[in-house]
Design a protein around this nucleic acid. Sequence first.
DNA 1: ACGATAGGTGTACGCCGTACACCCGTCAAG
DNA 2: CTTGACGGGTGTACGGCGTACACCTATCGT
Lengths: 238, 238
Amino acid sequence: MVDQAETLRRTPLSRDRILRAAVALADAAGIESLSMRNLAQDLGVAPMALYKHVSNKDELLDAMIDLVVAEIDPPAPGAGWKQSVRGRILSARQALRRHPWAPLAVESRNMATPGLLAYLDSVVGTLRAGGFSADLAHHVMHAMGSRVLGFSQELFDTARDTGRSGAAADQPSADMPPEMAARFPHLAEIARAAAHDDGSVVGPGCDDQFEFEFALDLLLDGVERLHRQGWTSAHRPG
Amino acid sequence: MVDQAETLRRTPLSRDRILRAAVALADAAGIESLSMRNLAQDLGVAPMALYKHVSNKDELLDAMIDLVVAEIDPPAPGAGWKQSVRGRILSARQALRRHPWAPLAVESRNMATPGLLAYLDSVVGTLRAGGFSADLAHHVMHAMGSRVLGFSQELFDTARDTGRSGAAADQPSADMPPEMAARFPHLAEIARAAAHDDGSVVGPGCDDQFEFEFALDLLLDGVERLHRQGWTSAHRPG
DNA sequence: ACGATAGGTGTACGCCGTACACCCGTCAAG
DNA sequence: CTTGACGGGTGTACGGCGTACACCTATCGT
């Protein structure tokens, strides 16, 4: 036992081992717990040892992001652009379910990593192969924005809390306290509608997956319509 | 002069004065510079003095968010639901242009403040008044997500950097270094398209406002179509 | 045999939020 | 007029963070 721990401790550090431990730590305890000190402790090593393999925390985060992006499925071979893009975005969403800290990491960096650029390039390629003009493809990529990476884009995202602190924060119950229902009657009404919607008052307030696909399909259907109409950038003529 | 400074320093602290100074500091220097110590210094006061008026930094952020939300225009009286919602979202976006730190604050809190709930309630009310079922209104609010507050939802948001550090980070030039163009040909292509798009190679790479309205209209048009079709939740029948 | 070098360590600095004890001016009650 | 409570500003200190820097040591090519 002690030998094993000792052996583990003496296993030489490597960039790869650090990245794996970092992802595991962020998965388990949230990105708030991912400090260089905590990470070093998990690896049985002094904090400053990490800096021999990683130049700083930002670079570590970049590498972690690339690991997550690499989990996104490749495009389905036979499918058209719509099914292909839809499938990849849903796959990206699954990857984020495994690594709920990833959106926070991406937003905190606000920089493109190589793996991320490769993914975006591939999605654009799918659109172009589907007959989109470069112009339309460009605007479509902007319109999808972070959703192309599977981000929920919800205003209040329980997954974000999970990514932050690892713990599963309890979702706000579908029925709100009465004084709130009085102040915000319309919100109370749609909350009630959502509760009835999935058949049980005690069930999950909203079906995240349904909401995500609803929004995604709204967007993709709109894009398809523009594409079929041969949309072209009409702004700033000349 | 010194008298005036002295007077200012002796002006009694108040929650209101603190909030105003906090917003001003975040506007000018980015939310990263909004520390209790910096804020106290701006007010000519000891850091701990703030805690007599604000219970902690999170509560301060909540109050700041409500100030920004309060800047969103009320709904235009005569307009239909679509113009009304569109107008408010564009107004929200203008508020965010004045306070680029606000999205980061909202995301960091991930909690609804009273002012924010009131705004959302009002938007839902507009939809309901436009004939939307509670069911559809609910899903539409999810589909819009943070966009209803004017968030750009871009993957790489230069405004986010501005909100973080106050400085205007230089936008990645429309033409990428050649080795990148080789690795990501499709991205290079749409970047070129965007550059030609607005007529000048040296002009702004992308027109943020255009991209925002493009995405917003894509969404609103789709929503209008669903509404006219009398869409109803078809998932989980029974 | 030996010097360079890669890799792990320990210490320290300057930030952060904030708990806690303190202190003083004002003002109401006796 | 005295006194005591209390609202509000201060100073110190704690534990956390990222990381610069000097140091030590084991390995390896010459």
